[in-house]
Design a protein around this nucleic acid. Structure first.
Lengths: 370, 370
DNA sequence: TTGTAGGCGTTATCAC
DNA sequence: GTGATAACGCCTACAA
């Protein structure tokens, strides 16, 4: 493979000017069919492929967009990767499961799918990157890696530190998925789900269909807007049923299985289990389920448990978990769609979209009133 | 936000030449500290961000690589996406699970993670795209979308038609994950796992530790090289234990849960269940498990079941499934690593890497001999 | 150490 | 319908 052919090579081969070659590619109808064919032949003969860089430079846009996902694991621990061909097979007995946090990645992967899909439909290329860790030192690296190569950015909540976010935002359009930094909600293009409404509907269902009057809220970290919105919905749901939210205990978890596992364990030992444990996410609901199962507490007979997010495990746990499913793929698609709008019209006011969620009823609350 | 600032703006602001600005960015040590600082100030004052296109054009490389994943769903069915803000929540009872094929995506997502990770480590940007469907019509679209913007490509097996693959290969470096088109195995840079060895070790384990002498192979589609290699390993395993491979029945599935579910159901009804069902992938093993469970057949007591791939469900099924785990993240990392080598040295001979797999023993074959 | 100038491969605006 | 030619924003000898 010699040097890559350019328009000049094609032009020479077809005996036309480079302008004509360009036209054949961009506006074929403005070229006489015969000339066009000659050029096309030359192109395929030489195996010519236009240079994206040159094209982007001239057109002043890249037709690419970037997506930042949160970093799952500690990237710090990632070392060299050694390429060694090794036709072998180890054997292990009952391998431990991965860190529980990994299941989060499912969420992101679906969002990614959505972005991929919609970018493809819109004729855009999608550039993907894991987010940055805390230190701002990585900014130069970030710049080199991505933002200089795209027309706009999609950022999943908390995948990029606020300072970096501010930096990027000054330079190119940014769409946030899930939520913006505190107090800047109406300055960003935003795509999110109706956390509040989902929890609201769920709580009302518990009261109306299952006669639950005593429920506790197992919260996530308080700095999470998701958690905040969900708690709001929880309170509103209670209130709309004539129940007093302040009478419902809050137990503070960390969005993790283990946190809810411990909390639930304590409640069992103290004998202070409510009729229903409403968890701020699925991971915690699963943790609660595990603790209850180990304690021999019947779900949903004695205690109802609900989650939030709709991760895959909810459909295979025992009992299967009632949850509020987020439309993750649509989140991605909506984000791309929003970004495209923003690129077309840079000065329009912020676009905010709230996608509906879906309450999915399963055994963990089913038939509990009977 | 006015027009984006360029080197010229920065140069003017700092009262230096554009060459100096460039040097500050690329080779800071060759600039007097004082000048450097002036330039840096101007840069941050203006919010200057170098243009990736221009840089790539001048440097004759993009520092980006592309990844093609197979398209999961039928993209044809994907329509417009309408942006509508809708603070709502539906409710459904016991929603059906997604199409079973979706679990495949887990596999790809992990590969993607690996690519992402290693690209990041190597300072490269990663461009992601779902593959193309059969028709070659999409080639122009493909060209515009991706190959013109990257230095090299990573392609997951069967995510791109062979014809398109041939086209791309002529124009830029391509690394295949899993396997190359038939009869071209030694022309490609390849990264794969030791399917053969994994199955071999598994089969020997079944014979030696569990005394299994009667086993059946539940195959995937025969056009799959994976399936072929695994079957080879199966046969070799038997042979090495003094058993005759041709005496072991093959049941032809489609890599899908339902196919194995039906096959297993038939075996139950016919009363022709072997001591062990060795499945070519996890999906089929799960299907078999389901059929056996419904028929009241004890696993592993009466029948041992094994899978291949190591998808997440294997760790939560009942009983949990013995399987051969593919190091999916490492596949991705190895692919990027290979591509980097190829880019550094375009003319070296094809690089082929085979990563070791890991046999994971769980209840579906545990204690079966006791 | 710093500046000048040519080139990277396209697109787009003019004339012809 | 086609062909010069000037951007596009950056890099990099080569000079100064």
């Amino acid at each position: 493979m010699a040097r890559k052919p350019t328009v000049y090579d094609v032009a020479r081969e077809a005996d036309v000017s480079i302008a004509t070659v360009s036209r054949v590619l961009r506006t074929p109808e403005r070229v006489r069919p015969q000339t066009r064919q000659t050029v096309l032949n030359a192109i395929s003969l030489l195996g010519y492929l236009p240079s994206g860089s040159a094209r982007s430079l001239a057109a002043r846009k890249t037709n690419s967009i970037g997506l930042f996902l949160p970093n799952i694991d500690q990237l710090d621990q990632i070392g060299e990767f050694e390429l060694t061909s090794d036709d072998a097979a180890d054997m292990v007995i009952d391998p431990p499961q991965g860190q529980e946090d990994n299941t989060d990645s499912l969420y992101f992967d679906e969002v990614l799918r959505g972005c991929e899909l919609e970018s493809w439909r819109q004729g855009l290329s999608l550039m993907v990157s894991i987010g940055l860790r805390g230190k701002g030192d990585d900014i130069p690296q970030l710049i080199n890696s991505m933002s200089e190569k795209v027309d706009g950015l999609i950022v999943l909540a908390r995948s990029v530190p606020d300072t970096v976010l501010a930096f990027l935002r000054k330079r190119l359009p940014v769409v946030m998925i899930a939520n913006a930094p505190a107090n800047q909600e109406n300055e960003f293009d935003l795509v999110r789900v109706s956390n509040r409404k989902g929890m609201y509907v769920l709580v009302r269902h518990l009261v109306e269909e299952h006669g639950v009057t005593s429920m506790a809220y197992v919260a996530g970290t308080d700095d999470s807007p998701d958690n905040g919105k969900r708690y709001e919905g929880f309170c509103e749901g209670l209130r709309s049923e004539g129940l007093e939210p302040s009478a419902a205990p809050i137990y503070r978890g960390q969005f993790s299985q283990s946190s809810a596992y411990q909390i639930t364990g304590s409640l069992v030992r103290q004998g202070t289990l409510p009729r229903a444990l409403v968890c701020a996410n699925d991971q915690m609901a699963l943790g609660a389920l595990r603790a209850l199962s180990e304690a021999g507490v019947d779900v949903p007979g004695q205690v109802i448990v609900t989650g939030f997010d709709g991760i895959k495990e909810t459909a295979v746990s025992r009992p299967r978990l009632t949850t509020v499913r987020q439309p993750m793929v649509d989140l991605g698609r909506a984000a791309v769609s929003t970004l495209v709008k923003r690129l077309e019209d840079p000065d329009s006011p912020p676009i905010s979209t709230e996608l509906p969620v879906r309450v999915e009823l399963r055994e963990s609350c089913e038939g509990a009133m009977d």
